[in-house]
Design a binder for these strands. Structure first.
Lengths: 145, 145
DNA sequence: GGGAATTACTTTCATTATGCAAGCAATCGA
DNA sequence: TCGATTGCTTGCATAATGAAAGTAATTCCC
C-alpha cells in the first residue's frame, strides 16, 4: 500500500477512548503523572489545576478500573498509595504529545517553550521515546527507594 | 539534539485543547466530519451516537468560536448551513488518529478493521496525509457542486 | 503509649451540564 | 400559498460536578 493509493478510512471508532478519557480531568491526571511525576493523591490535589478531591478519587478509580493506571501501597508509608501508569496508559503518550503540540501551536498564550515545540515538530517519535523512558526511570526510582 | 540526550519534558500544557475539546462530543463531531463526511446539522444528528440537538448546537458554536470549524450557507439551499474544518481543525488529525489507534488496540470489541489498524501502526504519517487529503477533496466537491 | 498530624478518601448539598420533547423561524418545493 | 425541511432554541427533569466538611487508617513525636 503506497501513499498514493486511495485508501478510504471510513470506519474509525473512537468512542472507547472517549468513554474513558472524554472529560477535562482524566487527561490532566495522566499528563501530571507523565510530566510532573505525580504518583500520590496529595500531589494531584496540589497540582495547578485545582481538581476537587471527589473528582480526583472518582477519576483515579475509573482509570484503575480501565487498567490505565495501577494502585499500590507505598511500602515505606502505609498511609500513602502510589499510582502508576500501566503499559496501556503509557500507550497514550503519542496521542497526548500531539494534543500538547496542538495546544502549543494554536494557543497564543502557551507556556510551551520553543525548544520543546521545535522538538515535537521535528523529532516527534524521539519525543515519545524520551517521555516513556523518563517515566519508566522515575517510576523505578520511586517504587524502589 | 540526539535521541540519547536527556531532554526533560517538564512544562507540557494541554489545558487549551481540553478547554475546547475536553468532553465526549466535540471530538466525535470532528471525527464525523473527517470520516463520515458530515457537514450539515442533520447529518450529525442522524449519526450513530445520538447527540441531543441542543448539545450539538452548543458544540458547533463553541468549535466555531475557537476557529476549528467554519459555518457558511449552502449556496444551493438557503435552509442549510455547511460546516467545514479549518486548518486549525485539520491540525488535530494526528492526535485523533492516535486516539483511534489506541481505541483499536485496547478495545476488545473494536470495529476498527485489521487493515486500517495495520496501516495506523506501520504508516502513521501516510495515514495522516491521506485523511487530510481525502477531507479536502470531499470539501471541495461539496462546496462546489 | 497517646494525642496530633498526614493521607486518602467519602459524604453532603448547592450549582451546573445534559438530554429529551416540544416549539419556532426561515426557506424551499409543489 | 401551504406543508415539509432544516437548523436551531426553550422548558424541564435528571445526572454530573465542585466546594466544604467529615472520616478512617496510619504514622510521627513526645
Amino acid at each position: 500500500m503506497t501513499k498514493n493509493t486511495t485508501y478510504k478510512m471510513t470506519v474509525c471508532p473512537m468512542t472507547y477512548v472517549l468513554e474513558i478519557l472524554g472529560d477535562k480531568w482524566s487527561f490532566l491526571i495522566i499528563r501530571d503523572m507523565l510530566f510532573k511525576g505525580c504518583c500520590q493523591y496529595k500531589q494531584f490535589i496540589e497540582s495547578d489545576e485545582g481538581m476537587a478531591t471527589n473528582i480526583l478519587a472518582n477519576r483515579l478509580k475509573k482509570l484503575t478500573q480501565h487498567d490505565l493506571i495501577t494502585q499500590c501501597k507505598d511500602p515505606n508509608n502505609g498511609r500513602q498509595k502510589l499510582y502508576h501508569l500501566t503499559t496501556k496508559g503509557l500507550d497514550l503518550v503519542p496521542a497526548i504529545l500531539h494534543l500538547i503540540k496542538w495546544s502549543g501551536k494554536h494557543d497564543s498564550e502557551t507556556l510551551l517553550s520553543e525548544k520543546i515545540m521545535h522538538y515535537l515538530e521535528h523529532r516527534f517519535d524521539d519525543a515519545v521515546d524520551i517521555v516513556k523512558q523518563e517515566y519508566r526511570q522515575k517510576c523505578h526510582v520511586e517504587t524502589v527507594n
